[in-house]
Design a protein around this nucleic acid. Structure first.
Lengths: 347, 347
DNA sequence: GTGAAAGCGCTAACAT
DNA sequence: ATGTTAGCGCTTTCAC
């Protein structure tokens, strides 16, 4: 009963056309909801498509139309809990708009990123959301050829001609710093991330600003986004002539690592050293630690990034969009012992 | 200078053919490394392709050849650290074989899974690795139509005609149980995952077996794979007439949640209650807790799953493959206070 | 409103 | 070893 010579397992548009007694073009229109098709015809076509269990080939469609309805998301490290959160938000928005998403783990390697962009472009991917913080933007933009095909999320582009949506990391850092200062802390240790990441520098600046007013001091030790360098960093911070009374991790993951180290050193948190992080990752231990943190508005970030990208794809003439999202300080037990923590719910 | 009527931004195969003075088919062969092409010709073609910065359209290629060189990976929840690990392993093996991977987050929903399978099949995806444990396999297999197009990883199919590669969860549970028994524990609490997951039941069985020999008892409280149900579970376990002296979480994430609760209750780990998990996730807190755990061989699992799937795709006549991977017990501080923990490295 | 014809960019027989 | 001929399954002018 199938028509195509080399079978595909599923009916084609020609099969449906035959069954409905119309031409393939009409089927195509009917299926996509094109207005120029009679009510009778449309009903008939849809019925036939249904009985034949017809499924349009996205491949053929993309090839013929030049639009794949797919975008790519570049992330640094999908094992870093911040990224799945962002990815889910992006995915949700994509679905809503009938787009597909492909997630690319770059491991912060320029080479990998460029390869992804090239390969996916070959596959017809229309545009990208770039949330991989750890690499120079140049090569990726070059591989892309058109700056309108990308939106940066969670990182600020150096280029003037790229849209982005980021958190206001400086303000976030400042809020956290002010919170600590208000608690009496004057020497704060910061286990930073790699210095090439704009968010790291911004958070550092925010913390500094909070300390400036009161003559406090920020001690910075470089680390990474995982917790691998945390031990040296903590050691360095605690070796200072006057110990910091609070330590801030560049993210919650790092803060968690720091916590373990402090425990080992017999230092009570928050009694002897207060502790805080960034990102508010939703993880058993965070609740367990009751970690004070500065949350990013991940959902909004993902949603906006998709909105901006699709708008640019549809209408390349639109202007570049730049957005800064506020961050939310969540005060919990590791900075304020009296604070109601999530643990308090447990009898 | 471009030939195609409706431009694409990049040169096509006919452009290259023209530039090299040969036919498109020859270009196609030369590019794919087909043997039937003269050395001279190949060199000439490759040179022309290079100057024109030619990039083959994967889309067109897939449509014409019927092979997209892409597979899909279905995971329950990409925010669960086990899955990124698996995903990375799968991705690595895919690259090696010049395949692309698309990762699908099913949230353990049948509907989502089926939709993914259908949508990706429309997109020409050749096959799937199914690592989403939380749903009935029926609908997915049905949507797939051909059991050779799927390999289960991290979950055991009920169907006889599906290949799989899983950890030997029962043996893993038994190892952990025996370790605890050897430490003198006779009453062990188990914060299980949802009962529909085969791995949960298997781990439970393994733990039970270890306790049987010595007249011990396993107390089971149902939870989930995140730590959301951990509080009730722990409360239930500790409410027992005789408290368990050890608690095992269905995974490290849950164990981490349990840890926090025990702390809140003022119970010392491992002094008053020993604690262990599964999966050996690589996360700041795990090192901090020095959590005893049973590791899965994620890399092997991912690699094997890809091998099996591609073999079946290439040659649908091959037999179904069933593999069980051993698990590795990692004894650390939460069960054995004297144990050298990763924390010991810190001065 | 509907159909015919011409591709999208590539691969795959079949010739030679 | 290379060219020719047909498509893969769909969209899209352009007629009518």
């Amino acid at each position: 009963m199938r028509s195509s010579r080399r079978a595909r397992g599923s009916a084609t548009i020609v099969d449906v056309a035959a069954a409905a007694g119309v031409s393939p073009s009409t089927v195509s229109r009917a299926i996509r909801g094109h207005p120029d098709v009679g009510e009778q015809t449309r009903a008939q076509v849809l019925a036939s498509a249904d009985t034949l269990r017809y499924r349009p080939s996205t491949l053929a469609r993309a090839l013929a139309s030049g639009r794949s309805q797919t975008i790519g998301l570049l992330v640094s490290d999908i094992a870093n809990p911040f990224y799945p959160r962002l990815a889910k938000a992006v995915e949700r928005e994509c679905r809503k708009r009938h787009y597909s998403l492909v997630i690319c783990n770059t491991d912060d390697s320029e080479l990998e990123s460029v390869e992804y962009v090239e390969r996916l472009t070959d596959q017809g991917v229309e545009g990208f959301i770039h949330a991989s913080v750890g690499i120079d933007e140049g090569p990726v933009l070059e591989a892309l050829r058109d700056a309108k095909r990308i939106v940066f999320a969670n990182r600020r582009p150096r280029s003037e001609s790229v849209s982005y949506v980021v958190s206001n990391n400086e303000a976030g850092g400042r809020q956290l710093g002010e919170h600590l200062v208000s608690l009496g802390h004057r020497r704060i240790g910061f286990v930073a991330g790699p210095s090439w990441a704009s968010s790291v520098e911004e958070r550092r600046r925010g913390l500094s600003q909070a300390l400036e007013g009161c003559g406090g001091q920020l001690l910075v030790a470089e680390g990474d986004f995982a917790a691998t360098k945390a031990p040296q960093a903590v050691r360095a911070l605690l070796a200072a002539a006057i110990r910091p009374t609070a330590i801030v991790g560049i993210n919650d993951r790092v803060a968690g690592g720091v916590y373990g180290l402090l425990l080992d050193l017999g230092l009570h948190v928050p009694g002897e050293v207060a502790l805080a992080g960034f990102d508010n990752i939703d993880f058993g231990w965070v609740q367990a630690l009751s970690l004070t943190t500065v949350a990013q508005r991940t959902d909004t970030m993902g949603r906006r990034a998709v909105e901006i990208l699709l708008r640019q794809l549809d209408k390349p003439s639109v202007r570049i969009t730049r957005q800064e999202l506020p961050m939310d300080l969540l005060v919990r037990g590791t900075t304020d012992a009296g604070q109601t923590s999530s643990r308090a719910e447990v009898p």
